[in-house]
Write a protein that binds this DNA or RNA. Structure first.
Length: 564
RNA sequence: UGGGGGCUCGUCCAAUGGUAGGACAGUAGACUCUGGAUCUAUUGAUAGGGGUUCGAAUCCUCUGCCCCCAGCCA
């Protein structure tokens, strides 16, 4: 029926893969997602995941999960479990068991031997500092290492002794013999192996030499029969080297293609910076709901479907961009609007007394659970003489176009009655502490039998039935659009938003929330989408605000304030 | 004064020599028991100059601007 079946927009990688299939460069598609297990996954990885898995899915291929664990000093098993959990949560699954670059250490070693025998690699005794000096600069060519022309026999001997542990860290390296004058620095005899007497999270102390990324990644792709190795633009300069190793080794030729990484405004997606936020206590952990980590977003209430939709909208290109976080917010709202049950919760309560409502009386009113989903049904909400309503839903002096409660004005209590404000009480500081109103018994359920128009509808909760709850409101972590841009001598920390977390400790929510499960999503009517925090317990409920609802009234009010 | 990339509405992505289109944001209106949702309409862009062509965002050329690379990190 729907002729315009949301034709998934194409992109240059999809096109290239289709072309490769058409020209029979490859007969099938196999991709890989290669995280380094040295941190938690974030929304930027979600883009890579969606691309890596998505491209394969699009052509009926599969995707390997391969941990890029070639640097034992930075990696840890703590992360390999978390990464797998996050990928699954996002909604993807890999072919077979998770793989590890470290599984190929022996094979990689043999490849190195092969290049040495071919006269294409040599053991170099230069110190790290000397290597830097010999490398030259961006505009000046480098110089050949004095060890460049060692005999094959000597190289073989030395490299085997490197493996045997005869030399201390940093004493020697194995280097590819390419071109010290290349304009591409990656081709100036890049280091293939370094000596590192460190325990590896999987291979333990079996090795004291470890391959560099450049000597591990391409071959790992090749070994696994990866057809398309999709990565960050940062590796564009590495592609000639990637190809060089594959060609000189004469092994299966994976095709590497690069796309622009994701950047989102008002946030930061550098593992190093995220780690600082955690280590220095600016956030409560990797799963702090303000963090752009998958775990943080999950706790905040973002859904996998929303994140995937967001990534789809962002698209794939080679242009470095800064995506508006509004797009992400739109994606969650759209998803949660369909699935989140509606519920009434008063975040900043003020008491409302219906002076003509019988004392002690309780009645149960029927409320629709989700107007977007009839199958969600209805529930009974207790109603009584004393209620809580939102403090901001009453104004002693209402501004123009204010539809809510004010002295003498009428408003509808959602699913309840139409009421009229007759009085209010203020404390010594001038704060409204109690509002008095009369209710119209003829309007039960919120309907006006006389057809009278009541513009405003507000949410409420019965005082004696309400459950106390803590609600955590989040705002962007940074005050500036691009916290990655740092002034001289400054730090991205300078741009932190000190108001990124607001805890509301005295909220009142309707009793149906008593057994709300962790991670359950709700819409608090008129306030936003919320999810149950992992700190939440029966009797001590805690909710996180995922995102507010669109608020056109706030916009109108802002305009009035500015316009005067 | 090296090498590699990139410049299309405010933002992100399309248009693959043939009407510059979509999404988000914005604006205006309709509807509404959520100032939500929904619906309708609407503003708004090819970095600049030259060239090829009946026709250029697309091809050529010159210029400008932006990003990445000098780890024994990935």
């Amino acid at each position: 029926m729907t002729e315009e079946t949301a034709s998934t927009p194409t992109n240059f990688i999809l096109d290239a893969v289709a072309e490769d299939l058409r020209t029979a460069r490859f007969k099938h598609v196999r991709t890989r997602f290669p995280p380094e297990p040295n941190g938690y996954l974030h929304i930027g990885h979600a883009k890579a995941i969606c691309i890596d898995f998505g491209i394969a899915q699009a052509y009926g291929g599969d995707t390997n999960l391969r941990f890029d664990d070639t640097n034992p000093v930075k990696e840890d098993t703590e992360y390999v479990d978390a990464i797998q959990e996050d990928i699954r949560w996002l909604g993807f699954d890999w072919a077979g068991e998770p793989l590890y670059a470290s599984d190929y250490f022996e094979q990689l070693y043999q490849y190195a031997l092969q290049l040495i025998r071919a006269g294409k690699a040599y053991v170099c005794d230069l110190s790290p500092d000397e290597v830097r000096q010999y490398r030259g600069t961006l505009t000046e060519p480098g110089r050949n290492s004095p060890f460049r022309d060692r005999s094959i026999e000597e190289n073989l001997d030395l490299f085997q002794r490197m493996r045997a542990g005869e030399f201390p860290d940093g004493a020697r390296t194995l280097r590819a013999k390419i071109d010290m004058a290349s304009g591409n620095l990656n081709l100036r005899d890049p280091v293939m192996y370094r000596i590192l007497h460190a325990e590896h999270h999987r291979t333990g102390n079996a090795w004291c030499i470890y391959p560099m990324y450049d000597f591990a990644h391409g071959q790992s792709d090749s070994i696994e029969g990866i057809t398309h190795s999709l990565c960050d633009l940062a590796y564009e300069d590495h592609r000639p080297l990637y190809d060089w190793f594959i060609e000189n080794l004469g092994i299966f030729h994976t095709r590497q293609m690069e796309f622009a990484r994701l950047n989102v405004n008002y946030t930061i997606l550098s593992k190093r910076f995220l780690r600082q936020l955690v280590d220095q206590g600016y956030v409560l952990g990797w799963d702090d709901p303000r963090m752009p980590t998958l775990r943080g977003m999950r706790r905040r209430g973002y859904t996998p479907a929303a994140i995937r939709a967001f990534i789809d909208q962002v698209g794939v290109s080679k242009k470095e961009s800064l995506v508006d976080i509004g797009l992400l917010e739109h994606a969650v709202r759209e998803d949660l609007n369909q699935r989140a049950p509606r519920v009434m919760a008063v975040l900043e309560p003020v008491k409302l007394v219906l002076i003509n409502y019988p004392e002690g009386q309780v009645e149960y009113l029927e409320a629709v659970n989700n107007p977007e989903d009839e199958s969600a049904g209805t529930r009974q909400v207790p109603f009584s003489r004393e209620l809580y309503i939102e403090a901001e839903d009453f104004r002693e002096q209402p501004p123009p176009k204010y539809f809510r409660l004010a002295p003498g004005s009428e408003v509808r209590l959602r699913w309840g009655y139409i009421i009229k404000c007759v009085d209010f009480v203020k404390d010594a500081d001038g704060r409204v502490t109690e509002i008095h109103a009369t209710y119209d018994p003829a309007t039960r359920g919120g309907y006006a039998p006389d057809g009278r128009k009541v513009k405003g509808t507000i949410h409420w909760v019965s005082a004696r039935h309400a459950l106390a709850a803590e609600v955590r409101l989040y705002d962007r972590l940074f005050r500036v659009e691009n916290p990655n841009r740092i002034e001289e001598g400054g730090s991205f920390m300078d741009h932190l938003n000190p108001q990124s977390l607001t805890v509301l400790a005295n909220c009142m929510v309707e009793p149906s929330l008593a057994d709300a499960a962790h991670e359950a999503h709700y819409q608090f009517e008129r306030k936003g989408f919320f999810s149950v925090d992992s700190d939440s317990k029966p009797g001590a409920l805690v909710f996180n605000r995922t995102v507010t609802l669109r608020d056109t009234w706030a916009k109108i009010e802002d305009k009035h304030k500015q316009g005067g």
